[in-house]
Design a protein around this nucleic acid. Structure first.
Lengths: 231, 231
DNA sequence: GCAGCGATTGAACGAGTGTTTAATCTGATG
DNA sequence: CATCAGATTAAACACTCGTTCAATCGCTGC
């Protein structure tokens, strides 16, 4: 109220429509305080009242679905723009580096933490991206082939995303975007070296543990070319 | 109310005192529904009223602290009893296999997901355990030495715990203990083979990526014997 | 100018929360 | 038996939540 944003035409960057302003405020607020944040807080951030929020979005759940759709479209759009390795996790890292995408990434982290449809969609996409990226690496001769490529892609995606969620749960950043971006960068810094070391040299000196386990659980994962329908 | 547990002396397994019964009910309810569960729900599970809960524990936060202390003492007690590799994560897997510890493990998962003091303590303990276990493996010649053993232990603990949290967020089990234990077992089954494969053979065919990164970030992690005070 | 219509507000509602309080029940102690 | 302390309950309180509703504001078309 005290800042210079009363005139909707002269705001710093936006003649955004009111529903868009509410949605952006909701992404920001939900990302910072979690989905337990109240409608009145979101409304206050957008400079409106709680009644107007449900007038435009029907209910709190409708607002959240609009947020989900919006951030998912951002992810999909930016993925085609930015050339990365195709991994959605790498994309997240890229996005978190850009100032204006900090609320989006924060909302994504919150959403992955809470579970739900958006989280499942994101994780599925990350798994598919990792699978394709690893397969390309195998074809190029830089990644070792796996006994079960799908399981490996799933494993790596779950580990990467999950560790990030745990990290943010243990070290919650302050409310401002800069603190979140710094925390994200700190996490990447801390994780990169051990991850690369593990990827480069493994952990065990021989395969005896793996072979013992594979003997104990002898099922091959149906890696034949025509047996992929067993699901 | 309708079951045969009115007489506090003839219950199946317990002349437990009333605060203990309330605490156990809280562990169960918080583990299943999260810490947003209401005091009245906990009280109903214990067969008492909400007022009595705050009479014994002061407040909801006091109740939660009592739950934290209780499950932490269980973890510490069982760790000395069960001989595992010392990893708290392995202990979790063992505990989740025992019927009567299912609520405890479920509460631990919830607590790790929510963050807070108990989560930090658990993760710190897991990191310390992993560090010791890996060091012993290195000394025994079965684990490859690391450029930064502390960072590797932290990395592995975060990845393991985080992936488990993400898994339970994406595939929430039903309310009963059996469903939770089955979900836990399913996760372990799915994760073991790819993890062992990665540990045994790594992911990359050569060390060029790692060496490139280490050249780009040339700081050695102060692995000298007397330079550990830089924190 | 004026009817109409969506945007917007402020107040209210009902259900939920954690907590407080007065009253009752229970059992041991004098 | 009388008394006292703790356990226990039911009701009330103050608060927040999402949602609803009637009223007002501001603009557009006739």
């Amino acid at each position: 109220m005290a800042s210079t944003e009363r005139d909707p035409e002269h705001r710093g960057g936006g003649d955004a429509t009111t529903p868009d302003r509410i949605r952006d405020a909701a992404v920001d607020r939900f990302g910072r305080d979690g989905f337990g944040a109240g409608l009145r807080a979101v409304a206050a951030d957008a400079g409106v009242t709680a009644g107007l929020v449900v007038h435009h979005f029907g209910s709190k759940d409708g607002l959240r679905k609009a947020c989900d759709a919006h951030v998912l479209s951002i992810v999909r759009t930016e993925k085609t723009k930015v050339l990365t390795d195709g991994s959605a996790l790498t994309l997240l890292t890229q996005l978190a580096g850009a100032e204006r995408f900090a609320p989006t990434v924060r909302y994504l982290v919150r959403s992955l933490q809470a579970g739900g449809a958006l989280a499942a969609a994101l994780v599925d996409q990350m798994i598919a991206d990792a699978d394709a990226y690893l397969a390309a690496g195998v074809a190029a001769g830089v990644v070792r082939p796996s006994r079960d490529p799908a399981a490996r892609a799933r494993y790596l995606a779950h580990q990467n995303v999950g560790a990030m969620l745990l990290w943010f749960g243990l070290h919650p950043p302050a409310a401002d975007h800069a603190a979140f971006r710094e925390q994200f960068r700190r996490y990447v810094d801390q994780v990169t070296a051990p991850a690369l070391e593990l990827f480069a040299q493994g952990l065990l000196v021989d395969r005896s543990m793996l072979d013992d386990y594979l003997m104990y659980v002898p099922d091959p994962p149906t890696e034949g070319p025509a047996a992929a329908a067993a699901h």
